[in-house]
Nucleic acid binder design. Sequence first.
DNA 1: TGCAAAATAGAACGATCGTTCGTTTTAATT
DNA 2: AATTAAAACGAACGATCGTTCTATTTTGCA
Lengths: 239, 239
Amino acid sequence: MPVTELPRKSSRLSQSPRAAVREAHASPKGLQTKAAIVDAALGLATQIGLEGLSIGALAEVMHMSKSGVFAHFGSREELQISVVREYHVRFEDEVFYPAMREPRGLPRLRALFANWMRRTSAEIDSGCLYIGGAVEFDDRPGPVRDELASSVRTWLAAMYRAVVQAREEGHVRADADAQQMAFEIHGLILALHYEARFLKTPGSIARANTGFDHILARYGSDTGAQPSRLIHPTPGNKE
Amino acid sequence: MPVTELPRKSSRLSQSPRAAVREAHASPKGLQTKAAIVDAALGLATQIGLEGLSIGALAEVMHMSKSGVFAHFGSREELQISVVREYHVRFEDEVFYPAMREPRGLPRLRALFANWMRRTSAEIDSGCLYIGGAVEFDDRPGPVRDELASSVRTWLAAMYRAVVQAREEGHVRADADAQQMAFEIHGLILALHYEARFLKTPGSIARANTGFDHILARYGSDTGAQPSRLIHPTPGNKE
DNA sequence: TGCAAAATAGAACGATCGTTCGTTTTAATT
DNA sequence: AATTAAAACGAACGATCGTTCTATTTTGCA
């Protein structure tokens, strides 16, 4: 299974030709307000979903006319794609790149999960676009779904790679199934989002952290398996 | 934390007064077509979501007029609630009650998970209302959200109860945290739904089953921890 | 078989949606 | 300061939404 490296500025480089042409003729002011629109759109989309995101509501938030907002994207679909790309960039900056400063192996894997947890915990109020978008575009083919799936796969591949490296470093058992381990970790994040955001079950954050410890204990090499504490323990885990 | 028993005919008994009055004057034919409408609506809702469910599309599927369909419910919201109730009833019949025939403790817990897995596997094509609805009604208060959350909580409480009973029977460690165990199991189902339905990752079903074995191995009492095989192994787990 | 009631149809409503078009205002450049 | 292009506006479009109303058909019961 091929796992590609997360490119630093992939979001900007991989834009559709249409948007690229559009921005080639754009003036600084245009780019600035477009960025502001995308920012507001991201805020709306994480709350009411990518499908619920309407240009009318977005225009109202921006104190602009519908057509004024619309002109920056050319279609609602292009707006949705821009929102997904923006989310992807922020996710990278907040979760992926900071963890890359940790040494390969268990420290980096811990940092990836800790950062992921911190972001998901914050998203208990706002909502996660990768989770919400997955449900909305389950069986709705098209460029928005492709963009979403591509972003998520890139992130999960990074997680998988960290597990493989931890195995190479001898921090997890040599016979550990990296895909299996990444799958179980993914489940913890999803359960946290579901139970904390929808059901509002108290203690979900602590349970996700504990679940990660359990996974590490299971797959940890018999030699250097510390009692496993998170790099950056989130304050307020007890509730 | 109180865990209530799943009442056998709760769905019929707990209907809103408005719908109850309506059906008090209903003729057999009316109830019959209403059931058919709810059935079709459930099919649509699992695919495009409860929010995407429109009366117009539903009427087209039913070969009826919009107003004809509408009259059975009085509002779109009441239709959505009916769909959630129907989903709840089917979930009970398919997942919960069959497992109750298994003896308390580990066998029943295994059966609950196996049935849950079987249903979620089938829903890779159709979609799960409990998962999709949770995302759609994350922060959208109202009776639909209440109905959804109530149903899910009832089911998760049943799962929790099975874990507690397995602990009482000595099938899992006496110091095991039942809420924690139920949380981790829930995560496996969510990861399966996400990776199989949205990302179409091969092997997800097998990974969910393996994850359950890992959880049982972790929490299993040192005495009677069999190598853990599922009651009803789903055919085609390898892919 | 006749009669009342329930079930369904059909048309129309106000609202909102994404989108288009022509115009006007604003910004960037010479 | 003048010129040109980009940005924003405002009105309107066709479509679809949930809902309401009245009329018609169908059903269940005496």
